[in-house]
Design a protein around this nucleic acid. Structure first.
Lengths: 223, 223
DNA sequence: ACTTCGAACTTACTCCGAGTAAGTTACTCC
DNA sequence: GGAGTAACTTACTCGGAGTAAGTTCGAAGT
């Protein structure tokens, strides 16, 4: 899972010269490995400096590779950023899904999901930074792709909402979408606010408050 | 209120030549008037093409002025964008505040506020576009300023929440902040989703659903 | 009417970063 | 060991943010 470096080439950040002793180090790597390397570096640097503050040359240099190679593999700066975003979101989705599925009942599932969400962002600062800068993709074709990445989350929330409705009840699908979008927007905003606010309140407090705020409201959607 | 043009100089968008007849048209304007002109043009163009798609030259040309003048008045692209954002948010805040204050009771105030929010964004597409691109300011000193602009909204929501708590009740201020941030995040996300979704559902439907979702939850914060 | 003086405004740049055309080098498979 | 190809590089273009330094208009004083 933590496979940032997995080869004889030292990950020095800048281009590594040949081994001094004699045998030249293997420079070229196959495409998949290079893509992973680039993605790892991009995630780290985007996380540290933000989208605007990061240049493609920076990333290429960190990997020890030239810029056109990055373009060959990821197409554009937006494409590379989107790839980072996508991978991070997938990890986050996994974490939250696991927490939700492990819970005993729907009420606890909701709480556990919120806690998992905020905790993950706590423990992965670069993930958070990348997601905050997600708005950079507001324009262009990347915007649609970014939406699709986020849509998986909305789908998870919508599923949870449905679990709380009687199976035979003719539920209003549009209303479920509204609720799911709201919850997604609320949690993202809270995550941003929380870090700008110095890391308070705790994930547990946030989750408990959201829980109390939303639980009875979901009840009233049942009819 | 709609003072986009207020002078003998025709607002042709591109630089206007002298009047053909004879008397040369007054070219120079005092600073305040020019600032307004630039801000109006910027709002329009940012709204049409987004932050990334707009260059400072575009805006300068639309006003019929050279780029350094724009820099003299607004400092940077971020500064100009922030000025647009700030003005639009102030208008939106006014609209929502009015709707809230005109309502008969807290429950209706909440509904009216939501309707006003979504309706305003419907009727001011450029406002919406600018706000969607707000994420562009995620980095740098402009980020803090953008947060402050949004904070007024959160404050309005927080005030409304407090109105629903018994005056003598020892309410948890942190919890109120959490709720206010959540509502702000939820409504912004819904606004974005709604337009990407072709303008459905209606503002009234969204407001009603949010109302139902949140009303009883707010109740449970009372004790 | 003529000078003065400051605010309004411009020309002509620099610099940086996204993206690309065309060529070169190292690994692999016969 | 000689193709053939994937991996990779050098050396650009192009556009847009931001700036230094100078110019012109218009009003206020005399």
């Amino acid at each position: 899972m933590t496979s940032t470096t997995d080869s004889p080439v030292p990950a020095t950040g800048t281009a590594a010269p040949d081994a001094v002793g004699g045998v030249p180090v293997k420079r070229r790597r196959d495409r998949a490995a290079r893509e992973r390397e680039i993605l790892d570096a991009a995630e780290r640097i985007f996380g540290e400096r933000g989208y605007q503050g990061t240049s493609m040359d920076d990333i290429a240099a960190a990997v020890g590779v030239s810029k056109p190679l990055v373009y060959q593999y990821y197409g554009s700066k937006d494409g590379l950023f989107l790839a980072c975003l996508s991978r991070l979101r997938a990890q986050l989705l996994d974490t939250v899904s696991d927490a939700v599925l492990a819970a005993a009942d729907p009420e606890q599932a909701m709480y556990a999901g919120f806690v998992a969400w905020f905790t993950f962002l706590d423990e992965h600062p670069s993930a958070w930074s990348v997601m905050v800068d997600e708005g950079m993709l507001a324009a262009g074709p990347a915007a649609q792709a970014a939406d699709e990445v986020r849509a998986e989350f909305v789908a998870l929330i919508a599923m949870m909402v449905r679990l709380n409705l009687p199976a035979d009840h003719p539920h209003d699908e549009e209303e479920i979408q509204i609720v799911a979008q709201s919850v997604s927007g609320a949690t993202e905003r809270l995550a941003i606010w929380r870090t700008r606010n110095g890391g308070t309140p705790t994930p547990e407090k946030l989750a408990a408050t959201l829980q109390r705020l939303l639980w009875r409201g979901l009840d009233s959607l049942r009819g």
